[in-house]
């Protein structure tokens, strides 16, 4: 769920950059205050571990498909909120810079969506109260699952809000929510399972490894307002979701179909008849939906099309691109001969 630059407006991107940079500075200060310099290599290597762990897949029970660790929650569990936020931010930065996975302008959004929620919501408000110091069993599995699901639901909701506010994608808010939240429910369950499996293993084989040099948790003071706020947010979001679900029942059906449709395409076992049925479903869906969404208002908003402008725009655009390419080629040539 890394967002790309192409879907973010500078205003949204800038705001989220500021939010994430502020959080990062705050976490960096908290880490410095712990004066534990063991954290320096530990955080670096654990960030690298997240990359490595993402290469190892496992079979999701009772489905036959496979998933892997995302990493936000396990970092939070291992390092505590402050250090884990910095690590997640660094992982996302390297992904953005070196693998073009998520854009630069969108980096603030991605750090916030994938870093803030696991570290500062899922860990202190869900994982720790439920799991406490359990090293396995129901508490660990339940806490991991719930924490991962909530963290990813909030993150996915963040993606939806940021994309909608940017106004570049035409995907309506309600449809986008219906697309993102169920998918991330599935991803959250996978994340919870993977996290619990790894924590349980480490707890069994080397329990002392779970006691990390992490920052002292001073949440106790301001926990209540956060909890209240979250509760209110949950009620609102839940209400809104159920309203959308009831007023657009086909929307939910559709986004579910979309999810399962993707899986079908990936699995080789799916018969060709099923595939055909999917294709039919999809083609049947298009006229139903696409034509009806708020057409009248938007027609007015759409600027009058002037063929002349477009012609000169197209010609000029093509020319400029060609010129740029030529300039680049000449520059290279000069460098090579020089």
């Amino acid at each position: 769920m890394h967002m790309a630059d192409a879907l973010i407006s500078p205003a949204v991107g800038g705001t989220m950059w500021a939010a994430s940079a502020g959080l990062l500075a705050w976490c960096a200060r908290k880490i410095r205050q712990t004066l534990d310099d063991r954290l320096v290599p530990l955080m670096g290597v654990l960030g690298a571990f997240i990359f490595a762990a993402q290469m190892i897949n496992f079979t999701i029970p009772a489905t036959g498909s496979s998933g892997h660790l995302g990493g936000g929650l396990i970092l939070a569990v291992l390092l505590g909120p402050y250090a884990s936020f910095v690590v997640i931010a660094s992982v996302l930065t390297v992904q953005a810079l070196f693998f073009a996975d998520g854009g630069l302008l969108a980096l603030g959004c991605n750090i916030f969506n994938l870093g803030f929620f696991p570290a500062f919501v899922a860990l202190p408000l869900i994982y720790r109260p439920i799991v406490r110091d359990a090293r396995g069993g129901v508490r660990l599995w339940l806490g991991s699952m719930l924490a991962a699901i909530v963290g990813l639901q909030l993150g996915a909701f963040g993606v939806v809000i940021e994309t909608t506010l940017s106004g570049i994608s035409e995907l309506p808010f309600d449809k986008f929510v219906m697309l993102m939240q169920p998918i991330h429910l599935a991803i959250g369950i996978v994340e919870g399972l993977a996290t619990a499996a790894v924590v349980a293993f480490v707890a069994r084989t080397r329990p002392e490894a779970l006691v990390m040099p992490s920052a002292p948790v001073d949440f106790s003071v301001n926990l209540r307002p956060v909890q209240t706020g979250l509760l209110i947010a949950a009620v609102i979001v839940g209400g809104a979701l159920s309203w959308f679900a009831s007023s657009h029942p086909d929307g939910l059906e559709w986004s579910m179909g979309k999810v399962s449709g993707r899986e079908e395409l990936e699995s080789r076992e799916a018969g060709i008849h099923e595939d055909m049925a999917r294709v039919q479903e999809k083609t049947a869906f298009l006229p139903d939906y696409g034509f009806k969404t708020g057409e009248p208002e938007e027609t007015q908003a759409w600027p009058a099309v002037n063929a002349g402008t477009t012609i000169s725009g197209l010609v000029g655009g093509a020319m400029v691109v060609a010129l740029a390419g030529l300039a680049g080629y000449l520059l290279r040539l000069r460098r090579k001969t020089a």
């Binding site: 654990l46 571990f49 190892i56 079979t59 029970p61 993977a194 480490v202």
Partner: peptide
């Protein structure tokens, strides 16, 4: 097979994590 069971996964990834922790220790 497409991937290991969750239990085996926990052990493999857990080992990877322990190795990472050991490395952090040695680097320190």
């Amino acid at each position: 097979a497409r991937g290991p069971s969750l239990r085996v996964y926990g052990s493999i990834t857990g080992h990877l994590l322990l190795r990472a922790l050991d490395r952090a220790h040695r680097v320190y």
